[in-house]
Design a protein around this nucleic acid. Structure first.
Lengths: 338, 338
DNA sequence: CTGAAAGCGCTTACAG
DNA sequence: CTGAAAGCGCTTACAG
C-alpha cells in the first residue's frame, strides 16, 4: 500500500504538505493541492488507520458492548445494534462489536488498549459490573438501559415505569379489573434487568391505585416452555380479562395459545405487548404494544457519545434521558366481556 | 496510560527487554521477567493497539460486512453475527461490524486503511459488487453465501439446492402432488440473493422429476403484506396440499393465516420451512424446517479466515463448503387429505 | 505558503 | 541473556 511518503514524492512536496493538503488544516496553494490530490488518486492512497490513531490518539471507532446472555431474547438486540451502527457511520465512526460473555474484561480490553474512542453499553443491569470499569476508562460511555448509579455516563432508556402505567391505565379505562403481566425470564431479572422491575412495579402500583387485581409472572424466552406457561397462567387466572406482555417470546407464542384455547383478542382477552413496530410487522405479532423504539434509543446514545468524544460536550453534565412510551394500537384491546 | 517505556523504567530494564518479556519471543531470565510482570501489574499496563498494529501490521480485528437491505429479513442475520463474533473472540480477534449500505465503499475503506486483518462477508449476492474489491485487497476474505465466482475467497453456505430437493421429496413420499413454494421478496432475489433461486430451481426440478405440480411465489418480508399474500396464494391454489417456506416472515405469518382459514397443519396442509431451530423456538414457529445453521456457518467462515490470516493456509487452495440441510421434524407434515 | 523534524507506542533485527 | 536503535505511517508544532 502507498504511504503518505509515496504521495509526497509523486506530488513533489514534503510529507507534511501532503498531510496538510489532505486534512485541510492549513492553507495550501491550489496548485500544490491539485498535485497532491492527483498523486492520491494515482496511487490509490488511503491513510493507515493504526498510524493515524497513534499520531492523533483518535481511532474513529466506537465500541459496542452487547451481552447476549443465555436465555435472553436476542433478536430484539439487533435493532439497537443497527441503529447504533448506522448512526455511528453517519458521524464518521466505525463500530467494534463485542459480544464477549465477560463484558467487564472485554470493556477493559478495548478501552485500555485504546481501540475505541468511546463506548456504548447495551443491556445495562441495575448494578452493572461494567460501570466501574467504564468510569475509570479515559473514554466516555453512553448506556442504553438505566443502571442504579448513573454518575459519569450518559443514559438513554424507555420510560418503563410510564409504560407499565400506560398498559394498566389503558385497560382500566376500558373497564378491565383483573390482569396478568408476563415479564422476561427470571434469569434476566436476577441478572439485573431493572427495566423488568420498573415496568412491573409501576404496573402494580397503578393497578392498586385503580383497585384492580394484577397477577405477575416471569415468562420463558423460548418454546416450548413459554407456550406451556401461558396456558398455565390463563388456567390459573380464569377471571383475568387482560394480558400484558413485557416479553417478546411470549407475544410470539400467544397467538397459537389463544387458538388452542379457542380464545380471541380482543373479544375474549385484551392484550398489550411491549416491542417495536418493526418487530411486530416482521414477526406478525398482532397485539397493540408499547413501542420500545430501539433504533431511536441507539441513535440518541451514539449522538451523545460522539458529542462527548469530540469535546463538544466532554465536560458537560451527564444526561439521563427517557423516551416516552407510545401505545401502538393494533386492535387487541376492548372492553371486557361482561 | 502507561506505556512500555514506563514498564521498562519501573522494572529497570530496556524497552526491548520489557517487550520480549511480554511476548515471550526470546528467552528472558526469570528474575527480569518477574520484575517486568510486577511493573505491568503495578502500572496496569496494556499495549496500545494502534501502536502495535503499526509495528506488526496486525490488528487482530476481523471486519464483518453485514448489509441490511430494505425489505430484507434482518433478524435472522443476528445469528450469523453472533456465531462470527463469538468464534472470532475465541481465536483472539475482535470484530469490526460494518452495516453501511454501500458495502463496496465500506469494504474498501476498512481494507485500504488496514483496520482489519481479514473480512467476512454476509449476505453474498450472485454477482456481488464487493468481491472485486475483496480480491484486490491484501487481506483474505471468507463469505457466507455463494457467489457466482468463488475465485480468491473461501465460501460457506447451506446447500440450498439439496434443501429444495429435500423439501419436495419429503412431501412427495407422503403422497403430495401439488405444492406451493414461498420465497423471499422479489427485491432480495433481484439484488442477487442466489440462494433463493438455488432452492427454488432445485425444488422445481425435483417436482418435475416426480410429476408433481409446484407453484412458486415471492413472499413479502412484513405484515400486513405477507399475510395477505399467503391468503391469496392459498386461494389461488386450492388443490395444493403442501406449503414450502423459504421466507421467515411468511413462516411467522402462517399460523394466523391458517387459523383465519380454519385450516390446521398437518391435517389440512403440510408445511416445511427453512430457518434455524433457535429461531423456531424463539418465535414459536411451529413447522418442520430445514435447519439453516447460521451459527455453524459463521463459525466455519471465521475459522477458515483466521487460518488464512495466520498463514497456516494463506496460500492454500480456497474452499467452497456446503452444509447439508437437515430436516427438523416439528410434526407439520403428513399424508395429504384424500 | 512550505519543509525538516520530532513524536505517538510499539516490535524486532542488529550488536554485544 | 540484554540494550540501543531503527522503523512502522501518520500528524503537528516549530522554523522559515
Amino acid at each position: 500500500m502507498a504511504t503518505i511518503g509515496d504521495v509526497a514524492r509523486v506530488a513533489g512536496v514534503s510529507r507534511s504538505t501532503a498531510s496538510y493538503a489532505l486534512s485541510g488544516k492549513r492553507s495550501i496553494s491550489d496548485e500544490v493541492r491539485q498535485r497532491v490530490m492527483a498523486a492520491v488518486g494515482e496511487l490509490g492512497y488511503t491513510p493507515n488507520a493504526g498510524a493515524r490513531a497513534l499520531a492523533t490518539s483518535q481511532t474513529m471507532v466506537i465500541g459496542l458492548l452487547a451481552q447476549f446472555l443465555p436465555d435472553e431474547f436476542a433478536p430484539a438486540m439487533l435493532q439497537y445494534i443497527l441503529g447504533i451502527s448506522d448512526s455511528a457511520r453517519e458521524l464518521g465512526y466505525d463500530v467494534l462489536l463485542v459480544t464477549e460473555e465477560d463484558g467487564t474484561r472485554a470493556l477493559k480490553r478495548i478501552t485500555d488498549s485504546r481501540m475505541v474512542d468511546g463506548v456504548v453499553l447495551l443491556n445495562v443491569a441495575e448494578d452493572d459490573e461494567r460501570l466501574p470499569i467504564l468510569r475509570t476508562a479515559s473514554q466516555p460511555g453512553a448506556l442504553v438501559g438505566l443502571p442504579g448509579d448513573c454518575t459519569g455516563v450518559d443514559v438513554f432508556d424507555l420510560d418503563f415505569e410510564e409504560a407499565g402505567r400506560v398498559m394498566v391505565e389503558t385497560l382500566h379505562r376500558l373497564g378491565h379489573r383483573e390482569l396478568v403481566l408476563v415479564s422476561q425470564p427470571e434469569h434476566v431479572v436476577e441478572r439485573g434487568g431493572a427495566y423488568v422491575w420498573r415496568l412491573q412495579n409501576a404496573a402494580t402500583e397503578q393497578a392498586a391505585l385503580r383497585g384492580m387485581v394484577l397477577h405477575t409472572a416471569f415468562g420463558a424466552a423460548q418454546q416450548p416452555e413459554v407456550g406451556r406457561q401461558l396456558h398455565a397462567l390463563l388456567d390459573a387466572h380464569p377471571r383475568a380479562t387482560g394480558l400484558l406482555l413485557n416479553n417478546e417470546a411470549a407475544a410470539a407464542a400467544l397467538p397459537s395459545v389463544l387458538t388452542e384455547r379457542g380464545l380471541r383478542a380482543p373479544q375474549d382477552l385484551s392484550v398489550i405487548g411491549r416491542y417495536s413496530d418493526a418487530f411486530a410487522r416482521t414477526f406478525s405479532l398482532p397485539y397493540s404494544s408499547i413501542e420500545s423504539a430501539p433504533d431511536r434509543l441507539g441513535r440518541m446514545a451514539v449522538r451523545q457519545l460522539v458529542d462527548r468524544i469530540e469535546r463538544k460536550a466532554r465536560a458537560g453534565p451527564h444526561v439521563v434521558r427517557f423516551i416516552s412510551p407510545e401505545l401502538v394500537d393494533r386492535g387487541s384491546t376492548a372492553a371486557p366481556r361482561s
